[in-house]
Simulated scan of single mutants.
Amino acid sequence: MQTLKPVLHYNLTFPIFDRNVPNLVEIRNLHFGYGDRAILSGLEMDFPRGKVIAVMGGSGSGKTTILRLIGGQITPQQGQISVDGQIVHTLSTDGLYALRRKMGMLFQHGALFTDLSVFENVAFPLREHTDLSEDMLRDLVLLKLNAVGLRNAAGLKPSEISGGMARRVALARAIALDPQLIMYDEPFAGLDPISMGVTANLIRKLNDALGSTSILVSHDVNESFMIADYVYFLSQGKIVAQGTPKQMQESDDPYVKQFVHAEADGPVPFHYPGKSLADDLGIGKTGAPR
């Protein structure tokens, strides 16, 4: 098993996204919906090896659905997703479980086992998927916890640590098996500014130390742009813009500008679409009641 290499420094300067880097995950002509309600339409996405890719967009745009499709929890109605050369929805149950061993997942609120200690939370995937001796398992868990700065919290329960620390424990658990692919579902949700910065730095450091590919689903522009190599913007289940964080910050696309600069009105309107207030109140153009 590959062990976690020490991280000695952190550099916020990344090269321009290189399309020649081979992809770990590829999405082609992907369509998915529930009944007649379309969620994703015609997606084409590349997730190169060793890169951090952010998938951003408003609530309900289909971001988390992409993670569920990659993990094989749901099946596309059209198109395909391949991970490490394997088409996910064509795999047998055993094949899917084997593929998932190459994946790590950080859920939106950590999803730690509340009755288990910090140590046992991180040990859980190792106990489930390996036959390591207790001594080796202990050493690996402590290495993972040390990587997120929480080795000395190993004996505590999740209720005894802060929300930011719990998120870091969940991150240590997500990398327990040294995955090729790490998926993050809103990793910054509910964190204070310090914890957000710590979590963002860890995501980038651990990705580079493991040589993994990271898919970061997030609403948070500052932290995501700080660590991502490339960004996809989704709206109503379609990709409306993509590029490097710098390109997105400088974009003139109305949707990207509204999202990046947190503007209240724009392509995503403030008012829910429908009749005007004047129509509802029965007021004519002159202001007199009809």
Score class of each variant (00 low, 15 high):
Gly164Thr: 10
Gly211Phe: 00
Ser212Tyr: 02
Lys144Trp: 05
Leu126Trp: 15
Lys246His: 05
Thr213Trp: 08
Gly62Phe: 00
His9Trp: 01
Ser92Trp: 03
Val21His: 09
Glu128Gln: 15
Gly197Thr: 01
Asn207Asp: 14
Glu26Pro: 07
Met183Asn: 07
Val122His: 13
Gly72Cys: 10
Tyr272Cys: 03
Leu137Ser: 04
Gly266Arg: 10
Ala288Pro: 03
Pro48Gly: 07
Ala200Tyr: 00
Val221Lys: 11
Gln108Ile: 12
Glu26Asn: 13
Phe233Arg: 01
Ser59Val: 06
Gly71Leu: 08
Ile87Lys: 13
Ser133Tyr: 03
Ile283Cys: 13
His129Ile: 07
Pro245Val: 00
Lys205Trp: 02
Leu191Asn: 14
Ala170Val: 10
Pro289Trp: 14
Glu250Gly: 09
Asp178Arg: 15
Asp139Leu: 08
His261Leu: 11
Pro48Val: 06
Asp252His: 14
Phe119Thr: 04
Gly163Val: 07
Met165Asn: 09
Ala176Arg: 15
Arg49Asn: 09
Gly60Ala: 04
Val118Leu: 01
Leu156Val: 08
Asn222Ser: 11
Leu106Asp: 15
Arg290Gln: 12
Glu186Asp: 06
Val55His: 00
Gly164Val: 12
Arg138Glu: 13
Asp229Phe: 00
Thr3Gly: 07
Gly190Tyr: 00
His219Lys: 05
Pro267Lys: 09
Leu145Ser: 04
Ala172Thr: 03
Ser159Ala: 13
Lys285Val: 10
Leu137Trp: 06
Gly35Leu: 11
Asp46Trp: 03
Asp253Thr: 10
Glu26Met: 08
Glu263Asn: 07
Leu132Glu: 11
Val141Asn: 12
Gln242Ala: 13
Lys63Pro: 05
Arg204Leu: 09
